[in-house]
């Protein structure tokens, strides 16, 4: 499976997805695939089965303020050195995304962290609860609307 074959395969199965390749002098760059929300889990399944990307590197989110939240996941094919960075955009105000946990077991903790930090509810996640912050914490800190030095008496 080379990067070219991967791009062809993605183009066949997901014609509306946008695929960006890295610069030719940087062969380690991933294929950046921008997907619609309903293609998120099917693409992950295709990446795992057809592209051989069985290694789940990480999953996170980015807050683009008025434009909404981006959910990102990176998967790698360790044998063929092909990496895919999948992205999907949640509409402004939306905070729900299908979960990759049924496809990749590593997404379990990564998505719990996204929920903790951004408030994104992952549908289909087996056990969505806060992972890093206290269970009774209010607010989702990595959103741009949350101040870094929010006070929390009496500790700070």
């Amino acid at each position: 499976m080379t990067a070219d074959q991967a791009v062809t395969l993605i183009g066949e199965r997901f014609p509306e997805a946008q695929v960006e390749r890295g610069a030719p002098d940087r062969p380690g760059d991933p294929l950046v695939v921008s997907l619609r929300l309903d293609q998120w889990v099917p693409f992950a399944q295709v990446a795992k089965d057809a592209l051989g990307c069985r290694f789940f590197a990480f999953s996170t989110a980015v807050d683009w303020k008025e434009q909404g939240l981006d959910v990102i996941a990176r998967v790698d094919n360790l044998d063929d050195r092909v990496s895919v960075l999948m992205k999907t955009r949640l509409a402004a105000g939306a905070s729900s995304c299908p979960s990759l946990a049924p496809v990749y077991r590593g997404a379990d903790w990564m998505e719990r962290e996204c929920y903790d930090m951004f408030g994104i509810r992952f549908e289909g996640h087996p056990d969505l609860r806060r992972i890093l912050l206290s269970d009774d914490w209010e607010g989702h800190p990595l959103l741009k609307s949350y101040a870094v030095d929010t006070p929390h008496p009496p500790y700070r």
Partner: peptide, 18 residues
């Protein structure tokens, strides 16, 4: 005093608060 992480939302500004 909280150290380099003093301004973090989850960090106690010094253990003498506890």
């Amino acid at each position: 005093s909280g150290g380099p992480f003093r301004h973090g939302y989850f960090v106690v500004k010094g253990v003498d608060r506890v």
